[in-house]
Structures are given as C-alpha cells and as structure tokens.
Design a protein around this nucleic acid. Structure first.
Lengths: 323, 323
DNA sequence: TCAAAAGTGTTATCCTTACACCCATGT
DNA sequence: ACATGGGTGTAAGGATAACACTTTTGA
C-alpha cells in the first residue's frame, strides 16, 4: 500500500447522447476536427478546477459545444486500454476516457442542431446486427460463418474460461442459445477479437481472413466500443427504470411508446402484454386528448406519471420474452 | 467538439477486495502510510506504460503489495468529485480514482495476510445498518429520527426531482416502502448529505445536528463511498451471475452457501426456496462426501458446476422476497 | 366498403412464496 | 432421548406468454 506518486494522464469525458426520432434510435456524432472521415462521439476535457464533478463538467461542455439540452445522465465505464486509441498521427500521450450515457428529446433540440458541428445518426448503422425488430437481420449470415471459422481456429485452451466457441454461442445465439439483446458490448468485443471490425485492423490486429469486408460503420478511437456499452446499458435499464420517458415528448400514444422501446431494445414486442405492463405499472395517465395523425383509428394520448418515481421502488418495463 | 488539450490529473486504482469467512463478509483494509488512524482501501497508481489495461495494472499491484490472489475483478465506477478527498495535509493536486471490486477466498491467502500491512475487516462495521440477517438492526432507531428531522428541514423544492422526504422513504424503507438491500450507496449518500457520517463533517459539511455521534466506522478519503458501491454491486450481481462461488472453497455444504449469500445480501433467506433455486439452476453437483463438522446430521458436500457458465445464458441466485 | 391502426378478453403455464414435516448424527 | 442442524413435498397465488377478436377512424 505504498503511496507511489501517481502517473499524470489526460482524462476526457466522452458522451453517448441518445435520442429517438421516427421510430429510430439516434446517436449524436461529432465531425472530426482533424479531417478523419470516421464519425466519433462528442467529447470534452474534464477540468476539476472548473467543475466539481464529472457530471457537472459533462453537462457544461455539452451545453457549450452543442447547445443540446440533456436530461438523464449516467456514467458508463472508464476506458483506458492502451492500443485501442490508435489514429493516424498519434501523439503517444496516454488518455483515458470516462464514458457517459445521456438521453435527450430530439424535438427539444431542433434549432440547436442546425448550428452545431454535430448531428444525430441512426445507431444501427454502427451495429446492423443489433436490429431484430423485423426478425433476424440478414447480415448475421455474413457474420456467423466467419466467426465460426475463427472459433475453430483458436486452440481451445481449456484454462481460458470461456473458449472461443462458447463465447460465440453465448454472444450470437448460435446453437440453441437464445439471442440476448443486452449483450451488445460482448458481441462487439468478439467481432473486434476476430478482426471483423475495422477498428481491430486499424489497431494492428490481424484479420484472420482479410477478405471479409469490415462490419458496420466504424468510429474513431474506441468510440464504437463506448457506444456499444451505452446501448447495452440503456437496453438493460429500460427494464427496471422508467428511462424511456426521457426520450418521449410530453404526450404520446401507447403505440409510439411501444415503438420507442422496440427501437432501443431492437426487438418486437407483444402489443397487449406491453400495454398491460404499462397499465399495471401505472406509468402513464391519459390526457383525455386523442391523436388522429396515426393513420387509422385515433389513438388516445398519454403522459408519464412523474409520481410513480416516488411511489414504487423501481418501476420499469421488464419486457419479457420474444414475440 | 473542439479538441482542447486535456487537463493532466492523477489516476489511481482503488480496490474493494472482498472475502467471506465465518459467515461474515470482510473487506481488505490498508494501514495508512501517513499515520491516519482511519482505515482505507488499498490503492495503487495506474501506469499505462507498464500495464496495458486497468485490470492488468490492478492485478499487478495487488499481487505485489499484498500477495493476495484475486479471482474475479470488475470495474465499479470512477470517482472524481472535488471536495470528497479532504485529508489533513492535502496537497491540492486533483486525483480521480477508478474503483474496482475484487473477490477472493480468504483460505487461499492466509499466509499472505500475515506478512502484509493489510488485513480483512468485517464490512458491517462500516455499515451497521446494512445487516438485516437477524431482523431490522437496532441502529436504525438512531438513524431514522435524525434523518426525518433533516428531511423536514429541507424546503421541499418541487423542482428538485426527489425531495428529501422521498429519498428518505425510498432509501430507508420509511413509511411502507420496503427495504431494498441493493440501495447501499444511496443510503450512504443520504447519510453523507445529512451530515451523519464523519466523512461529511471532515469534508466541511455542516452537521445539521452536531450532537448525533457519527454512524459506523469512517474511512479515509472517499473510500467508504467506494465500499458502499462495491457492496451494492455485489448484492445486485449475486442475483444474476454465479459470483458467490468466487468466495466459496472448492467444496461446501448447501447451508454454508446459503450463509454466504445471506452474509453478503444482509438478509435471511428461506431454506427450501434457496435450495430449490440452487438445484433447478443446476449450479452445483454433489461430491459424494459429507461433512460432520456442522453439528447435527452430516451435510452433503457440493462443488460448483463450472459447466453452467457455458450452458445457460446467465445463471444466478435471484433470491426473491423476504422471509 | 375496406384498409389501417387502436384497443380488449381470456387461458395455460410457470415461477414464487410459504407452509409443515421427516431424517441422521453427536452427546 | 433429545438437541441440532440437514433435508424434502406440496399447495396457493401471482406474474407471464400467447392466443384471437372487436372498434373506430380516413380514404
């Protein structure tokens, strides 16, 4: 327990700022100042003198740089791996980044966005294999066979806890294992380990079969890894905390709410069960108004019952099975 | 999204190393090098040149300093609040610490401990209100009334999401709300905010009623906060991942397993339900041996079935209700 | 009148919770 | 024999998952 002087390191805050629009989840991406064509997440320095906590610092530079009004904010993870930061003209200085998840309503920020050097992009373009709303995505047919080949390649060291095969089975639902929509990060890390995403090749990892085109849009630094962490956390949180409402307008139809949950969790839900869940949890109350803009029969409008936050311990939407 | 040069800050890794012995959860505490009488968690610097990742760095200095053999390791949270570090001769340099949870078996480390300047202490001495195994702990009678007074004191700003009263209700199960054993951090933070733990007074917060003796043993810096985070995380994780076995010897009785889970979660469990849970999850297998050292009828010995890790998605011990 | 989306009723099944009782050993 | 802890069977209640059907609008 010696009190060695600690290494000075640069600390940055990286934000995954999420909004849902047109039944599609979006992530705020920043243009690269150094003309890297790849997208990146917005980030800013942490200055302990100016800001008492990380969260205050984060809110400050997000507001200053993007004029976006974030509501819910939560720390995700602190990333400090050497070698996952490579970029063209790397300075060599070590940097760690504290990843944050933030939620916002796109409607609140329409004006801000036109001015900012940043914009929202649909997140499934970075993770096309994560969208199961219309059933198993076709791209998995291009992912699983190479992964299986990669898994056979690794001498299955019985000491290393889960061998390549088991990791593949559990992450991608191969061989009877169910698909778990929360394992977003595990899947990305597996693809990285197999050299099937561009970031792995950029970081100097050998693709075991270089012919395969890299999967999904890449991001700068380790930002896609941070985004994967954010999606995973949000998908999990949805089930035990009423965070969806941070992404909804004040008034909404139940179908719109369901579509938002489906958009985030990447899977299709059973209508009645979803409605019963929302009703029995008493998460919403009718406004009395209806909306006729939905197509068929007018839908009743609801608003979030903020009171639930202080009534019950921890209400969420624990979706349950597939369907 | 400007690429401002980032502030250099010192980064340390702080570890909450847990073991269970004699049906009591323990935490490894380090003697203070600067003759502070308060206990602290072991910590070490992170040197990105020597170690590729935080986890590798952590394992390295834990092994070097304590000769303790940690198994399971998991990142908890990164703490960087200014003003929660105060100590007698503070240098003023800002430090952030990445908190880690680590699990070990005390039996594996008996020899190492005799040599090290560190030792395991029962964790409930830092959080006496968290041990509900023998029912509601008496100390709550000394905690709740002052907290209620504190809650009345705060003008209940309706804008600030949960008012003091609601926080109190939800954290401490006052007024019909159930006790949630996972809210360890929330409870500690509430006590800190109310000035009822020594750390709050040390950090310059005014105790709203200074006569009340501070609750539980204090720790250095913000280490008790990190420990609260570790306990909360471990209590939650127990329910959906088979982490208990990281704390058990190779062979154990079902009662010993139950006692360990109870020790961590701080509550009493229903025997049959616990056993059925363990059985239906197929988490253990009988060794064929029995132990006669338990008192009455000899108990069958079991071992963890490592295979479950690769069979089912995520087996744990989702305890369920009270009893 | 028909398409499109909103909205409802009901059942089989599993899991959770809690009850009360029997068994094998040491003293 | 009896105290001590080990070990089991089973029934009530609630939550979940899946089924198919009716209603109200716009075109």
């Amino acid at each position: 327990m010696a009190e060695t002087p600690l290494t000075p390191i640069e600390v940055g805050l990286t934000a995954a700022i999420v909004a849902v629009e047109a039944e599609e989840p979006h992530i705020l991406v920043a243009a690269d100042p150094k003309s890297d064509t790849r997208a990146g997440l917005p980030f800013g320095p942490f200055d302990p003198l100016a800001h008492r906590t990380f969260e205050i610092g984060l809110r400050a530079w997000v507001a200053a740089q993007t004029a976006i009004n974030v509501g819910y904010v939560e720390q995700l993870y602190t990333f400090g791996d050497r070698g996952r930061h490579a970029r063209p003209g790397d300075t060599g200085a070590h940097m760690i980044s504290v990843g944050y998840l933030a939620l916002t309503r796109m409607s609140d920020n329409a004006a801000a966005l036109r001015a900012a050097a940043a914009g929202f992009e649909p997140w499934y373009q970075y993770f096309p294999w994560e969208d199961w709303r219309a059933g198993r995505p076709d791209i998995l047919d291009a992912i699983v066979p190479p992964l299986e080949q990669w898994a056979r390649g690794g001498r299955d060291d019985p000491a290393r806890s889960p061998g390549r095969r088991e990791r593949l089975r559990r992450c991608f639902g191969v061989g009877g294992s169910p698909w778990d929509e929360e394992k977003v990060l595990d899947r990305y890390e597996l693809l990285y380990a197999a050299g099937l995403v561009e970031e792995a090749r950029r970081d100097g990892r050998e693709a075991f079969r270089a012919k395969i085109p890299p999967l999904g849009e890449p991001m700068r630094l380790d930002h896609r890894r941070i985004l994967a962490t954010a999606i995973a956390r949000l998908r999990a949180k949805l089930k035990y905390r009423p965070v969806v409402f941070e992404l909804m307008p004040d008034e909404f139809t139940l179908t719109a709410l369901q579509r938002t949950v489906e958009a985030i969790s990447g899977r299709h839900l059973h209508k009645q069960n979803f409605r019963r869940l929302v009703e029995t949890a008493a998460l919403v109350e009718p406004t009395g108004e209806t909306s006729t803009t939905t197509g068929g029969r007018p839908a009743a409008l609801f608003r979030f019952r903020r009171e639930v936050m202080q009534e019950r311990p921890a209400p969420g939407l624990r979706l349950g099975g597939r369907s």
